[in-house]
Amino acid sequence: MTPDAVVSLEAVSKTYATGAAEVHALRGVTLRIDRGEYVAVIGPSGSGKSTLMNILGCLDVATSGRYKLNGVDVEDLSETELAAVRNTHIGFVFQQFNLLPTLSAWRNVELPLVYAGVGRAERRERAQQALGRVGLAERVDHRPSELSGGQQQRVAIARALVTDPALILADEPTGNLDSRSSEDVMALLDELHASGRTIVLITHDLEVAAAAGRSVTVRDGELVGAAAPLVGFRA
């Protein structure tokens, strides 16, 4: 893998045992995502895209094949090392925001830095900078309940940015938002991509996927489209 490849999957398969049966969630997936790319992964429910997301995010490991993230072969890592990779190399943006309701916006954003052992003063400075980057400089002390859905997702994006990760992994980031907030969040992802961020967007929505520079389609555990969404695809 060259230094420009952030994601490199080589013949990755994932099999789950369910009683006496086996479920082949992924079948020999090979995929490369270079630094600065914006890639959408699309597919219907049960296609394997969630399993692919979990492997990309180091939330699960492949049954076979190789996965290198930013040059690191994750197969060789211990659970502790995998946790460190998740915390520093990947910025997660989830559909549900996953903000702690008792903490202010900046306290939510600083959490990855807490786990990384960064000092308190630096944590606050970096968290506030990240919130400023997503347009929430005036909301750093607000709790999630005091923010709109779109603003909460912006806090989640700031949290994803605060460690300066190699990869931003966004899983249905507009799934819980109204159309205006969805447009705002997608515009922010566009800005981040324009600034050089590598983004992988997991979605079933073709309109959302269209924002990416490239898309791959997952069906029955296999990649069946690596350049653009399949015509006629429906979630």
Rank of each mutant, 00 (worst) to 15 (best):
R124Y: 01
I90Q: 00
V118Y: 03
L136M: 15
V93S: 09
P101C: 04
Y115I: 13
A105G: 06
L99D: 01
L136H: 04
V134D: 12
Y115G: 03
F94K: 01
A83H: 11
S104D: 11
A116V: 13
V114K: 05
E122W: 03
A105S: 14
E125S: 08
R86L: 11
Y115Q: 05
T102K: 07
L82M: 11
Y115T: 08
L82T: 12
R107Y: 14
Q128C: 14
G119E: 15
G132Y: 07
R107H: 15
A137I: 07
A83F: 04
A127F: 01
F92C: 04
A105R: 08
G135S: 09
N87E: 10
R107P: 02
L131M: 11
I90K: 00
A137F: 11
N98L: 09
L113G: 00
V118L: 04
A83T: 15
L103C: 07
L103K: 11
V118G: 00
G135I: 02
L131I: 00
E110P: 02
E122A: 13
G117R: 08
L103I: 03
Q128D: 14
W106S: 06
W106N: 03
A137Q: 15
R123G: 02
E122G: 01
E125F: 00
L111R: 00
V93L: 14
R120G: 07
Q95D: 07
L103P: 06
G117K: 06
R123H: 02
P112H: 13
E125P: 01
L100E: 04
G132H: 06
E138G: 11
A105C: 07
Y115E: 02
R124L: 02
P101N: 04
V134K: 12
T80D: 08
G117V: 12
N98A: 04
V85W: 03
R133D: 12
Q128K: 07
E122F: 06
A137W: 11
T88E: 11
Q95H: 09
A84F: 08
G132W: 05
T88S: 13
R120A: 15
R86P: 04
T88Q: 13
A130N: 09
S104R: 04
Q129C: 02
L131K: 06
G132C: 03
F92V: 03
N87M: 13
T88Y: 04
S104M: 09
G135T: 02
I90V: 15
N108F: 11
V93Q: 12
G119L: 06
L99R: 01
E81K: 12
A116N: 06
A121I: 14
